[in-house]
Design a protein around this nucleic acid. Structure first.
Lengths: 144, 144
DNA sequence: CTCTGTCGTAACAAGAATGGTTACTTCGAC
DNA sequence: GTCGAAGTAACCATTCTTGTTACGACAGAG
């Protein structure tokens, strides 16, 4: 499906900031996070920008600038993150409208829309069950 | 997420063949289906090739050739179709391995893998609940 | 007021996936 | 042998993601 790693990088980022703040630091920089996630700081800043638009993080500028959480990881679910960074639906309908003169072509889109909506609803429910705090705890529970 | 329309086109195709066969026809051609789905016959043949590899349809060649179902729509679910045409996972992990020297970098992949596996399992269960027969009935139930 | 570190953001390129199109070969019923 | 359709390779346009460079904007330190 050409899956992307945006949710993964976002979860990584939030868990990193959360842990860093618990260690007593005020803010985290995109460069630190990029080092941990093994990517480019601009990639992190772009993602964090979307998370900020959703109200999950905030940023300071100037010297000693960086990013911080707006609320605790316990009050943040993967659904919040997903909504912040994934605009589109899971499954797309036809690129070009099907032949409306054909019985199938006419009814297929409403029929599939219903089915797809049900599946997305299930996925959203599932995502909402996992808090970022749970993610962090799972991360810390990995041996070695 | 850059969602594609492969599941949509595949469902359209199977519903079309199923209905056509119920109307007494032996086989359907990629050109007929492409006309209904408003796309190119080669696109349909490519998809049908994958569905054939999964055992859902079969094809005849030569004059009067075309495609037919190997079993009734009642014995075919969206999960069968999904497995036939979507190889990859729903969510990807990091492109480049995260920093294993970092606590988060080390534990994030196993942690997310578990979570993603649970979600995919849920999606698969949901897909398996819908038969292509149900899709066809929904299509036929659309007014006008 | 200047210096400096970090965000904010534009711009560009590489790579991959999807979908459309053309063209040609292969098959098999007639 | 003819002919209609599958099988398939090749190519292109588009889009998305990710990585990268570059530079302006900002704010605290001194």
């Amino acid at each position: 499906m050409s899956a992307n790693s945006r949710l993964t990088i976002a979860a990584h980022t939030l868990a990193w900031i959360g842990l860093y703040q618990r260690q007593g630091h005020e803010v985290a920089t995109s460069e630190q996070i990029a080092g941990s996630a093994n990517t480019n700081p601009v990639v992190i800043r772009r993602l964090l920008g979307e998370l900020r638009a959703a109200g999950l993080v905030e940023s300071r500028r100037g010297v000693g600038a960086g990013w911080s959480l707006t609320r605790d990881l316990t009050a943040m679910t993967l659904l919040d993150v997903y909504d912040a960074i994934e605009p589109g639906p899971l499954f797309a309908l036809h690129r070009a409208d099907p032949d409306q003169g054909c019985v199938i072509g006419h009814g297929i889109q409403p029929a599939l829309q219903d089915i797809y909506a049900g599946i997305e609803c299930t996925v959203r429910t599932e995502l909402s069950k996992t808090t970022l705090e749970a993610v962090l705890q799972s991360v810390l529970a990995v041996p070695r």
